[in-house]
Design a protein around this nucleic acid. Structure first.
Lengths: 204, 204
DNA sequence: GTCTATAAAAGGATAGAC
DNA sequence: GTCTATCCTTTTATAGAC
């Protein structure tokens, strides 16, 4: 047998990696199977030995997110939960993530793209979203009294901030938005670094 | 001349209305010119007498948003700014908006769809986004000390909340997310209705 | 399992009649 | 201005050789 199971597994992972990269930056419809396969150093015909359809690939690419993106990284031992979460949130709401990151977060980069797609990709999206929420909650529980509802709303702000910022044409507006979201998110989660002032918020 | 200028204007507006409705719910690529024209009771061939290309239509559809969507409605005289803003925010972050609204907000329904498109639709998106921000700011200035940065972040949370909620497959998660965003947004903007408790937020 | 070749459909854009 | 007819490209998916 010229092709081993291991070889197939490797091909599959290359395809999946290429898919995540191309889908997140260009969207589902603007990415052809041809492109994905070429990026993985294969040809179109080989595609269907690995995935049932393009949408099947989409769903699996999204499901594989935790392996790749920002929140998938494990906490280093020399940092406590508060420091680490602060770093994750800042990295998420950074220019680097929006403009250059090799593997940006599908939750932000593909929200509406997934919404108009089949149930399978939406299901995968839902699971990743819940996981991100749980991770943030697990971190905050170690040091703050930030409740579940607040974490959900902050997650939406992070995703929305990145998604909207990416769409804007005005560079200053992009940066201002990211900065505002970063500051408010850190404050609401209770991880704000001591050298920064609290956001000025008007309470009724 | 069998066709008057007024008649052309009416056709154009029908096309634009159909475009907004179909694009927001189905996305750019999943909506064909055929569909839009049929919805406007015309045929494909007539399209190019009104718009240069499909992307031209997309840009103009997005630009026409303030005429249609939630934040486009003028404040009634019998309500003050605080009451009115509270109502707008609640309507924006409502199930009705996410699931049934005939003309949902493109800022939320088309974020990533626009991001991967040409500069013209992105430019139109940017202008609508800035306008929404300015409107909220104009309202808040009348009664709260909520600063510009907070308004920007809250706008992102509203857009993100609606966009993410729409994408999730789990109905309870959808509703929980909307509710959490609604509560936090109203609190941060200082328009929270008196009968609801303040969100519990952990300040450092 | 991967390749080349091809089938088949969809959809954007144009031509020309009225 | 609007219609019908058509061109043409893109792209998903399959068939069959190796």
């Amino acid at each position: 047998m010229p092709y081993t199971a291991e070889h197939k597994q490797q091909s599959r992972e290359r395809i999946l990696g290429s898919a995540v990269r191309l889908f997140t930056r260009k969207g589902f419809d603007n990415t052809s199977i041809d492109e994905v396969m070429a990026d993985a150093d294969l040809t179109r015909g080989a595609f269907y030995a690995h995935f049932k359809s393009k949408q099947d690939l989409y769903a699996q690419a999204i499901a594989s997110t935790p392996l790749f993106s920002i929140f998938g990284q494990p906490k280093p031992d020399d940092k406590d939960e508060r420091q680490w979460l602060s770093q994750l949130v800042s990295a998420y709401l950074s220019k680097l993530h929006v403009k250059k990151a090799d593997l940006p977060c599908p939750l932000a980069f593909l929200v509406t793209d997934v919404a108009v797609n089949e149930p399978e990709p939406r299901q995968a999206y839902t699971e990743v979203y819940l996981k991100m929420n749980q991770m943030i909650r697990a971190y905050t529980r170690q040091f703050s009294c930030c409740d579940k509802e607040t974490v959900m709303a902050v997650t939406a702000m992070m995703i929305g901030g990145v998604a909207v910022s990416r769409t804007l044409t005005d560079k200053k507006a992009q940066d201002d938005l990211l900065k505002s979201c970063r500051q408010l998110a850190l404050g609401l989660l209770g991880v704000e670094s001591s050298k920064k002032r609290n956001p000025r918020i008007a309470w009724v």
